[in-house]
């Protein structure tokens, strides 16, 4: 019954997406807990509902066509925060570019080497390569390099949350005190979630993280096809 009702009404899918995100945002605002990212809580609610009501994913996907269609636009607008932080970029140009480039290469190399060593499925590893990029870029990269876009998007969300929670602890452990270095690591390794965390530490960390996210995403797009050559 629930299944037929959901499928017959063309608005149900998008209504659920927006509604669950709204609930997720309220939960996050109340708790301020990094693990409770609205995208994680809302997606979990939707998956549980679809499985309970036995609604196929394709039906839900088609009912969200409007959102899916303008999704590529979300990468283009990253130019605005990058331009706003141009001053801080110019001030530490070499350390920023070197740090982001080294971090991006290191994290992608680690995926390929460790994954191959323990025998992870190739389709999963390829989907994991762009995981540190922001989702607007990662999802398109996944399509180009032959990964599974849905898996990549979920791995990007997981990376953001792990990085946002563990990142500051790692930085404390290895005694990184410089605001620039902290911001660069957070933004280049865990995109928007890391950036939100960086802004809690301070203005410089936040701006650094914000521009690192855009630059790391671009580098990931350029370098990912190179790492796929190892498969």
């Amino acid at each position: 019954m629930l299944n037929e009702f959901f499928q017959a009404n063309p608005i149900s899918g998008m209504l659920m997406t927006i509604g669950c995100y709204w609930i997720g945002q309220i939960i996050y605002d109340r708790t301020q807990w990094t693990v409770l990212q609205p995208i994680l809580t809302s997606s979990t609610m939707i998956i549980l509902f679809l499985m309970y009501a036995k609604i196929p994913y394709d039906v839900y996907y088609q009912q969200n066509t409007v959102l899916n269609y303008i999704l590529p636009l979300t990468a283009v607008v990253l130019a605005v925060p990058l331009y706003r932080n141009l001053n801080v970029l110019k001030k530490h140009l070499l350390p920023i570019l070197a740090g982001i480039l080294a971090g991006t290469i290191a994290t992608m190399a680690a995926i390929v080497v460790i994954g191959k060593l323990i025998g992870t499925d190739d389709s999963i590893l390829i989907s994991m390569i762009p995981k540190s990029a922001t989702n607007p870029i990662a999802i398109e990269v996944a399509g180009i390099i032959g990964g599974i876009p849905s898996l990549t998007v979920s791995l990007v969300v997981a990376t953001g949350i792990f990085g946002g929670v563990l990142g500051p602890e790692v930085l404390k452990l290895i005694r990184i005190k410089h605001e620039v270095a902290r911001g660069i690591a957070l933004g280049s390794m865990s995109h928007a979630v890391g950036t939100a965390r960086a802004f809690k530490e301070g203005e410089i960390e936040g701006s650094m993280s914000s521009l690192a996210m855009a630059i790391a995403g671009t580098l990931t797009a350029i370098l990912s096809p190179v790492f796929v050559l190892f498969f």
Partner: peptide, 25 residues
Amino acid sequence: HIVVPLLASILIGFFVAAKVTELFI
């Protein structure tokens, strides 16, 4: 097989990005 490379690559990435930035500063 997913969690191990995912977590390890995040930790390695954080380490390298932060250390290299600090070194160049």
